[in-house]
Amino acid sequence: MKRFLSITRDPIDEAGLVADRTLSSGMGAAVYFSGVVRGQEGSDAIVALDYSCFVSMAEHQFHRLFDRLAERGSIESVRLVHRIGRVAVGESSLWIEVVSAHRAGAFAACQWVIDEMKQVVPIWKTPVTAANASSPSNPNPTA
């Protein structure tokens, strides 16, 4: 199974990622999901989310998830980009694509990776309101 992982402070170039897609002739499904920062966090209006990350562990845990995904045998590729740092409302913080022979497997795999990520990958988010937007975005020096 091919895999691509990027944890980045840069905006996610969704059009570029889609343009770079490759799939073999046996593949019939390319499912991708873009997670976008909402303007509400609970009942509070926000302007952004600050994402912090334990990068080396996050990369390791993502690859462990990809290893488990590969064991399913029907997935040709997975590509995942997660933004860290400050991500404004309306911007994408997560982009994931799964290529598989059939849509059911691709949808299920995409959902599975996101669900598992939210259990084990050390990334955290802090709401940014208009009032605290000038505060530093990252309490950890290595994230």
């Binding site: 994402y51 050390p122 955290w124």
Partner: peptide, 10 residues
């Protein structure tokens, strides 16, 4: 050793 709260990616 690292200590941290529940993760919140996505």
């Amino acid at each position: 050793v690292s200590l941290f709260p529940p993760v919140q990616g996505g």
